[in-house]
């Protein structure tokens, strides 16, 4: 499987465009930007971006670094949102327990769905994940606790650890930001771990990894479970932020959207999915005035984006940087 994004970041390292010092400087700058942004931009919008960025980054761990295209990742985002919403609203759990419950359920779902799906590869893998996501969507429509078409509304945000009330948007933003950074760090570390190197070898040449003595299915499963769990964390956080959990997050549209974000931003790059998420959520948000045409516009952007920037925004940026040594 050819992953143009990863080739670019590899080349950027080799040519000294990315160096450890520059990388550190970049992450510090981004970190500070994340701290300052809510003072200038509407926090709920930013939190939405952070949730989707975490979702897309978790998805990229599979697509970009393991070579697995899941077409059912909405299952983890959506079900974690429902679980968190339910335990906060109906059972009155504190927010941290609610987030944990949603994440845990998504992780377990990942274990079950992943355990079955990794037995097949390519399009069959994608279809099995889609099939499971459709079943969960059906459950979300039918089960009483999800509120069916109406969804779960009015989820209380509560008080974090019994100390920090989350009703102020700015407070909530910094909590969400911390969750995002935690999730992002887990993904970053996974990519750059001994485990991550085995994943890459599986993506690059699965039979060869097998012939070197790696039980590739077990590695794929662990990657799938991590990805599902972090997608769940994103879904749980989103439910806490927006105070509702609806069918939208379980719908296969969401599974498609995350593919789109990842490809648009640059699969197999660390920052690509976040950039893609920013672009897609921004379009969703600021184009909502044009009604149904949003879909057409996003579709067009995607087609043009993939045709013109095959490496994704981040991949293209790294490619351009080659020609402008600095």
């Amino acid at each position: 499987m050819s992953v143009p994004g990863i080739q670019e970041s590899r080349t950027a390292w080799r040519l000294g465009i990315i160096t450890p010092g520059r990388k550190r400087a970049f992450f510090i700058a981004m970190g500070l930007l994340g701290l300052a942004l809510p003072l200038a931009v509407y926090p709920v919008f930013l939190m939405n971006v952070l949730c989707m960025a975490l979702f897309a980054s978790a998805f990229n761990l599979l697509l970009g670094y393991t070579g697995l295209l899941s077409f059912g990742h909405a299952a983890f985002l959506g079900s974690a949102g429902y679980v968190t919403g339910h335990v906060l609203k109906a059972w009155g759990w504190p927010p941290e327990a609610g987030l944990l419950a949603g994440t845990l359920v998504a992780t377990l779902l990942g274990l079950v769905i992943g355990g079955l799906a990794i037995r097949r590869s390519g399009i069959y893998f994608a279809m099995i994940t889609l099939g499971f996501a459709q079943m969960l969507y059906f459950l979300a429509v039918q089960l009483p606790f999800t509120g069916g078409e109406d969804g779960l509304q009015g989820i209380p945000r509560g008080t974090l650890f019994g100390l920090v009330p989350l009703d102020r948007p700015l407070t909530l933003y910094y909590v969400v930001y911390a969750i995002f950074l935690l999730g992002f760090f887990v993904i970053y570390r996974t990519i750059h771990s001994p485990f991550g190197h085995v994943l890459r070898s599986i993506r690059e040449n699965e039979p060869r990894a097998l012939s070197l003595g790696y039980d590739v299915d077990r590695y794929k499963l662990v990657a799938f479970v991590i990805s599902a769990g972090l997608s769940g964390l994103a879904g749980s956080t989103k439910a806490l932020v927006l105070q509702f959990a609806t069918l939208t997050d379980s719908h296969w549209h969401k599974s498609g959207e995350v593919v789109l974000m990842t490809l648009l931003g640059g699969m197999g790059t660390v920052m690509g999915p976040s950039v893609g998420a920013l672009v897609v959520v921004t379009m969703d948000n600021y184009l909502s005035g044009v009604g149904d045409w949003v879909t057409v516009i996003i579709g067009s952007v995607f087609v043009v984006g993939v045709l013109a920037f095959r490496r994704g925004f981040v991949g293209e940026a790294l490619h351009l940087a080659r020609n402008f040594p600095f």
Partner: peptide
């Protein structure tokens, strides 16, 4: 290195830095 790393027994350690390799 991918072939050499398996005997280290850390091939599932996703929390460890790859500097350990």
């Amino acid at each position: 290195r991918v072939a050499l790393q398996r005997p280290l027994g850390t091939s599932f350690h996703f929390w460890k830095s790859d500097r350990s390799l």
